[in-house]
Design a protein around this nucleic acid. Sequence first.
DNA 1: GCCCCAAACTTGTCAACGACTAGATACCGC
DNA 2: GCGGTATCTAGTCGTTGACAAGTTTGGGGC
Lengths: 184, 184
Amino acid sequence: MTDRRYHHGDLRRALLTAAVEAIGESGPGGLGLRDLARRVGVSHAAPVHHFRDKAGLLTALAAEGFELLARSLAETRDRGGDFIDQGVAYVEFAVSHKAHFEVMFRPDLHHADDPDLTAARERAGALLADGVTDEEDPRVAAVAAWSLVHGFATLWNTGALSREHDEDPAAVGRRVAAFLFRRS
Amino acid sequence: MTDRRYHHGDLRRALLTAAVEAIGESGPGGLGLRDLARRVGVSHAAPVHHFRDKAGLLTALAAEGFELLARSLAETRDRGGDFIDQGVAYVEFAVSHKAHFEVMFRPDLHHADDPDLTAARERAGALLADGVTDEEDPRVAAVAAWSLVHGFATLWNTGALSREHDEDPAAVGRRVAAFLFRRS
DNA sequence: GCCCCAAACTTGTCAACGACTAGATACCGC
DNA sequence: GCGGTATCTAGTCGTTGACAAGTTTGGGGC
């Protein structure tokens, strides 16, 4: 705390990580720019200079989230993973990056038309669609697959079904994802 | 507007419907107790008397939402609908009651352990689980089915996939739900 | 028919927030 | 080592949620 210099060094980065922490504690609604500034140890108006406003901060956070998701999906693909693995990667991302994931799909919280954000979102979306290879109806299959993993991740994160299944979310997610493409 | 008496008559009901309207305009984050009071034409502290605080109001709204959902699911069941119809009913509810649906699955916005809320939630949950009849693995099937329709509804409402499919959400939802229980 | 009490609502206030403005400070290219 | 600019601070405004205390109203007991 003694190294309180005028120039922080990388305030933008510090604010983003502090935001992740704060959201993890009290949700994106409880997030405050002033509280954030206090955590990092700067004045209450410092965040405004890096992100135009509160929504700007969350926009950056959402973009970073899609970035991370895309990276994770690309990794699984390069590792030779099939659709199920992609779905598990999606769920694992959502669970281990709750704050990012929550903000990513909340258009009312961020500037949804931000160029950086839309670019990152489309990148992740393309990877996601590529992961699904269904011969019959590829379009419906892609939407179904995305809906399934997204729904599972959301329900898990909100605590809607954790009471019955308090095992490893990735393991349960795998069984659920496999259910979609079973053959009987 | 001339009938501005001291006792409103049914302020609680009026506040809830006003809240639905306000959330529909600017999301649950943009909702304000004072703004709500202004819409209904009462003092800024009147809402506090009916719902303890902002979260209390949203708790009541969420409970009402689960109530409505349960009613809709029960109706489809009594009409002899199968799982697909139940899924469509779920999606239709989510789309036509955006405000309710949004608050229902946001534990950070309401008092999640409220007795009225949990009762309504469990009622809806039971109906939902009953709708799925799978001989192989009923538990996984139930979670998969719920995840699928919930994910689809969420993604649709947030505008994540409406660009490709701007048809009737119920119709698309039906195709997606049918995909889960196809036999090839 | 009246009185009184509890429920419903109002007015006033406080700390905290987001956004804005103007000013102070320090890094960096020249 | 100088100037310009990005970075950050300090101060302020309107608005919010929550709380406290007072006022009005309807209705049940007599």
